[in-house]
Amino acid sequence: MNIVEVQHVTKNFSNHIALKDLSLTIPRGSIFGLLGPNGAGKTTLIRMLNQITVPDSGVILYQGRPLQREDIETVGYLPEERGLYKKMKISDQVIYLARLKGLPMDVATKRLQFWFKKFGIESWWNRKVTDLSKGMQQKIQFIVTIVHQPNLLIFDEPFSGFDPINAELLKNEIIELRNNGATIVLSTHNMNSVEEICDQIVLLNNGEKVLEGNLNEIKKQFRTHCYEIKVANALDVPFPDTFHVLSQYSENQDVIYKIKMDPSENPNQLLAWFVSKTSIIDYHEVIPSMNDIFIETITAQNVNRK
């Protein structure tokens, strides 16, 4: 079942079109990558999910029915530009924001204690935001986003400002939230993190959807049938016609071949041929990275427009 269904949504601003007849679905329990270059309309869509703005036309279904005001309490939002009251006590601040999301005071306090303990930051309870480093503020902001246990979590560039250790911590938290049943919308330019944690993605460009689906399936769509095979020594025999050698280079004593096969051929033939000639050290299909897919798709689309 889909937690969100966006149906033919259009949004105009005074001088440009932010979203153009956009339709997409976010499956429940997925980590959904919302990708696209700057100005593609990601933030506009996110703000609609948060009911900060409304579509000019089209509907957004949430849990099967049109988005309603009360739904706001089941959505958590971490905006790209982080913001907290600088001079307010951190605990007061998080409890206040949680209460705005509908949590009673005592529940909010208890949850906050839990998260402070989990992150090992109990000593921050009475401190102010101005006393914290940027990374520390990000942690607080993360707690603000999740403390009311939302069904739908929207993270806009969650990893920016985190060091690798804390980024890893955050990534694991996101996966755990998903495993506990939440749906996560992840808007980011960091394609590595998309590959690591996203199940589904949509790629927007100029307010339109250019790509949507399961991450692995999309990658399969973009497969080039290239294989990298590492063998013990260079071969001086001719290759079969179905093998197109793209490159060949040595690494220490080993030699690495990059070979493109015709789509109709079975990659097993490649292995069988090499096995008969030499000893194989490593073998894998060269799968395009999300980064490559992003650049290729957007560039092609922008060229077509011109």
């Binding site: 905006p79 913001g83 907290l84 009251y85 600088k86 705005l100």
Partner: peptide, 11 residues
């Protein structure tokens, strides 16, 4: 300081 966006995603 961008707290406004967080608050108007609640009220």
């Amino acid at each position: 300081n961008r707290i406004a966006e967080i608050i108007i995603s609640s009220v």
